[in-house]
Design a binder for these strands. Structure first.
Lengths: 199, 199
DNA sequence: GTCTATACTTTGATAGAC
DNA sequence: GTCTATCAAAGTATAGAC
């Protein structure tokens, strides 16, 4: 394959870099350190990436795309709005809490992106929020939500989930499924009408 | 006042630096830029601080101390556990959402601290969590909480509140009091027993 | 595709006059 | 307390041989 640049190697580098960026932060991780950790010369990295910032962007971009695909799949089903929402909440929780090293970057390193890359991810972020908003819209038509502004409800949930990367560790007293269940319950009881919640 | 180093100037510098660190990140903000923004020479900064990291630490440390004082005051009253909790949640929400530029650092720049400073703040973080845990302990004795692990409930709340620094802006459709009310409601309905919630 | 060598820039911090 | 001048270190990135 000409001009392919060995996608396996690219993935391998990203797999090494994500935890590095996550633990020390983007700006505190040097290209020299990355190269050492990957096991190649610093200059060789530039064969696979245009620069340090591109490594960060591609990891973050992949992570967002991956989640978007699944979220859209769930929403495309003909489940009841309530069940769709539960599936979305469940998936999203497992996604973040299950891969904290990579998702960490999405939460903490937005500032480190070049403006044009930042714009791309902000746009995808908007897609995320739209998916949630649409779901709540469907619920509202069925009069199943309380009088909490939709966006506040969404951001409350996102905050709850994103924060897991700082405290949740697999292998602890609560497993991933259990955590997703708890978040669903908090959100259900807290946001939706009780009569709907007990359905 | 000998050896005082003009506390007013120190506060002024911190007030300029906090938004800088918050918007561009600690490592992307240089001492030269800080000096320019403050309106003094780069070297002069070293008269007030031992170095860049100390500026960051002192801002973060002050912010934590300030919150701790109020939280302890609330807990020292002889209100009902439920009311104490509501007061704590209310204050904490207003504190974070009301000063996002400074509190941003507490959420995003822990990695940038020197190890010994990091340790100090981690210790204070533990105090925070203890305050919440004790409150839930009081509630549990009255059998007013559901079967959600205490720490999960606490981290759910902290995540919800800390995330406000990324989306909430004063002057929008929801004011600070309203936001605190909503968070209290979500948390009350989601975490506590319904019978207790409607008291 | 991988290396050596190096250019170039920016950084945090210090010395010392005033 | 504030400045000028400067240092040493570390950073990203590139040129070019193999």
């Amino acid at each position: 394959m000409p001009g392919t640049k060995s996608q396996e190697k690219v993935k391998e580098i990203q797999a090494v870099v994500a935890p590095l960026f996550a633990s020390k932060g983007y700006h505190s991780t040097s290209m020299r350190e990355i190269a050492r950790e990957v096991g190649m010369n610093q200059s060789s990295l530039y064969h696979y990436f245009r620069g340090k910032e591109e490594i960060l962007f591609e990891i973050m971009n992949d992570a967002m795309d991956q989640a978007l695909i699944t979220l859209k799949q769930i929403c495309a089903t003909d489940l009841l709005p309530r069940d769709k929402l539960m599936n979305v909440l469940h998936f999203y929780t497992r996604y973040y809490a299950g891969d904290p090293e990579r998702l960490n970057l999405l939460v903490n390193e937005q500032q480190s992106l070049a403006p044009e890359h930042r714009r791309i991810l902000v746009e995808k972020e908007r897609e995320y929020v739209c998916i949630f908003k649409d779901l709540f819209g469907e619920l509202k038509r069925n009069r199943t939500t309380k009088e909490i502004p939709r966006s506040v409800a969404i951001f409350a949930f996102l905050g709850m989930v994103h924060y897991t990367i700082t405290w949740y560790r697999k292998g602890g007293p609560v497993d991933l499924e259990g955590l997703a269940d708890i978040f669903c319950e908090i959100f259900t009881r807290g946001i939706l009408r009780e009569d709907a919640a007990t359905t």
